[in-house]
Nucleic acid binder design. Structure first.
Length: 274
DNA sequence: CCGTTCCTGGAT
DNA sequence: ATCCAGGAACGG
């Protein structure tokens, strides 16, 4: 899926394109992607609703509407595409929102893992998909990050698994976990309990540096991810280790290695990361 | 903790 | 044919 930088890019696009518009109709072709309400009730409630704001929490998009908060999770392959006027329909288009100015917002998802949830009345913080999220990685201070790491100091799990744990810090996925740990000089497989004060500070610093640069570059595009206008991001050109197996480490020249950690492809330089 | 599962498709 | 893929819930 889009991780924090990709979702943030889409959010900023949607602020410019659909905030202020009203949904006049919805073509929902894959009812199972709606959580909470039935598909019929979801459509009934959102028809006629005005989009008031486009927000984000971790990797979740939150469209504030006059009918409640619309949560959208893109998971691995979901895309939100804004069509100002007639655009060709892509394969795997599962939902189309028709807006009152003739434009459309389309949800396209090859793997069908993404979901929508309309929250009409309850507190957002009680929603299951939001309730257990940790702090935003770009907001957390060094002292707070250090405190959270120290709380996990009994854990033998890898530092990479912890960074990807959304209840620890919310928004980092497989790409940026590898990139952050390379930039911080820490091996992804290192147990959390072995982190030094200096390494913790380096990881905190690189989370900020790597994620904000990726946002500036409008995200990383491989196969699926594009922004809300259908354009690819640019951060794939800046990746140091992710999917760079066998290529020379940009710092020391040694070939980048790949292992499997927690079921995920994990990329690193064994000279630059300890 | 790890593996499996939800899906479809591209790469090897 | 087999493995892999920006996520995350679930079960053992």
């Amino acid at each position: 899926m889009p991780e924090l930088p990709e979702v943030e890019t889409i959010r900023r696009d949607l602020v410019k394109s659909i905030v202020g518009l009203t949904i006049i109709d919805i073509d929902l072709r894959l009812p199972k992607l709606i959580r909470g309400y039935s598909a019929e009730e979801f459509v009934r409630r959102l028809k006629g609703a005005k989009v008031l704001e486009a927000g984000r929490r971790a990797k979740m998009l939150i469209l504030k509407t006059s009918a409640g908060e619309l949560l959208i999770h893109l998971k691995m392959s979901g895309r939100l595409i804004y069509c100002p006027a007639a655009c060709l329909e892509e394969k795997h288009t599962h939902v189309i929102f028709f807006m009152d100015n003739g434009s459309e917002l389309r949800f396209v998802d090859m793997r069908k893992f993404g979901f929508f949830r309309l929250v009409a009345d309850s507190e957002l913080s009680t929603i299951p998909e939001l309730a257990n999220l940790g702090p935003e990685p770009l907001d957390i201070s060094l002292s707070e990050f250090t405190r959270l790491i120290n709380k996990k100091k009994t854990s033998k799990r890898s530092i990479k698994a912890l960074l990807m744990d959304q209840s620890f810090v919310a928004g980092i996925g497989n790409i940026y976990a590898d990139e952050v740990l390379f930039a911080a000089g820490v091996m992804p497989s290192r147990p959390v309990l072995s982190m030094t004060e200096g390494e913790t500070a380096a990881i905190h610093h690189q989370i900020r540096t790597v994620l904000s640069l990726a946002v500036k570059n409008r995200g990383t595009s491989f196969s699926q991810y594009v922004d809300a206008s259908g354009q690819t991001g640019r951060h794939q050109e800046q990746l140091k280790v992710y999917r760079q197996t066998g290529k020379s480490c940009p710092r020391c020249g040694k070939p980048i290695e790949r292992i499997k950690l927690g079921g995920r492809g994990t990329h690193f330089c064994s000279d630059c990361q300890r």
